[in-house]
Design a protein around this nucleic acid. Sequence first.
RNA 1: GGCGGCGUAGCUCAGUUGGUCAGAGCACACGGCUCAUAAUCGUGUUGUCGCGGGUUCGAGUCCCGCCGCCGCUACCA
Length: 501
Amino acid sequence: MPRFYVTTPIYYVNDVPHIGHAYTMVIADALARWHRLQGDDVFFLTGTDEHGDKIARAAEAHGVSPQEWVDATSRRFVEAWEGLDISNDDFIRTTEPRHHIAVQQFLQKIHDNGFTELGVYSGLYCVSCEDYKKESELIDGNCPIHGTPVELLEEENYFFKLSAFEGRLLEWYEANPDAVRPSSKRNEALGIIRGGLEDISITRTSTRWGVEVPWDSAHVFYVWYDALVNYLTAIGYADDPARFDSWWPAVHHILGKDIIRFHCVWWPAMCMAAGIDPPAHLLVHGWLLVSGEKMSKSRANQIAPSDLTDDFGVDAVRYFLLRDTPFGTDGDFSYEGITARYNADLANNLGNLLARVATVVGSKCDGMGPGADPDSRLAAVSATVVADAIAAWGEGQPHLALEATWRLIRETNAELETAEPWKAEPGPAVSAVLGSALEALRIVALLVSPAMPDTSAEIWRRLGLDGRPEDRRLPQDATWGGYPGGRAVEKAAPLFPRRSE
RNA sequence: GGCGGCGUAGCUCAGUUGGUCAGAGCACACGGCUCAUAAUCGUGUUGUCGCGGGUUCGAGUCCCGCCGCCGCUACCA
């Protein structure tokens, strides 16, 4: 059975979930659901990143222990993803014992292989970044990212010999041209590597809130170095080698462009250093802007996913995130944009199609849906659309998959317009037209189920079909003629009531 | 500064290897229809395809230069 292992980055618990996180999650979730629909064995992983001095300090500021703090803040992500119908199979937290064990084992291996060394690092340290800064990159003496003062810090650190992997990384990129997609992001990663790699400090002695270094208990690992290992922890790196081998390295890491360096440079090198293969697929998406501006705390333009789902509904939000932006480019969120998509695609096209078909089946067929016409013009349209959608989902291009799916919706509306079954007397001709429209809707329900699971199930139910669309299998169940006929079609409230503002 | 990308109707964008390529969706205007959620159907307006050259019988589609925007990267003189 084909397998599909997909991950999102694990989110830093000091952040509050916003639609940027949601964007990543919905893409990963849709891909996971798509692969399940194909019958693949899927493992979909997300989680939270919970170590580091910044978190320890936040806990202290709130008068609670670090563990109490991360228990509370991690929950915000769990709840946010439940609210978006995210179907992750596991939720990993870096403070879990299983993760500590895996990190220690993984980094011990790197240590044993001679890719660490002890050094003294003295420099200007930004607590917010948990990282050292060069004098030259400071702005007015402050951290260029956070705008906050840096502290002079000198500590003994272990370093990862990243510099030793420049050549091997370039060879790996050469041998695996599709490992990082899209190619524009691959080029950025190559640019970073060609620009020269320096060894990285990977431990801290200034905090205790982290994974203890197994060969030197005075140190804990730097957050990034423990976080990335989560992708291995969850599939049994430390405790189930057979399971680990069944999932690795054929992973699909979904990530935003801001963390290319960590995922596309450090992480493959770390894997090489530990003696395992680098991740096979790194899928880099752009940022979701808000009305053209980057989301940030200082701009106070972060939007909580629940604000949108309360307003538009979960599936409409998911649809917008997947449909509006080609994978890899920056997207833009605005109320005008999501409203336009909602009205045009969901209310006027999909929702209205279901409504008009249900009404006419009610008036011309006594509410019993007829079977599809095998000679319908829509049969060929459907075959093309299904093929295009499968190809697009397979390439990680949800917006193209949905665009293709909407072609079938449009064509079905057009077909009704041509045949005008509401004007005709009940009979074989009317039954053929309506049966074909119902069949098209059945196929649409299957094709949109990764994007809009609830909507898919509701269409399925109203068509009088048994079971759930998730239990069907593509492509075989999307071949023309699957609608059995003789089923009661339910006319009900609009799926997506049109919005006026 | 280097590398890369982009600039096509009001908006978002398609446009393979140069020859129905001047398009789609949305928005807008007028008309029709009524099965449907002020839905839908038909028709239509707007574009010097960033600017200037060049190659060619013929260029959004190739070459050179310029302008503007963006990403990555670097600070060399």
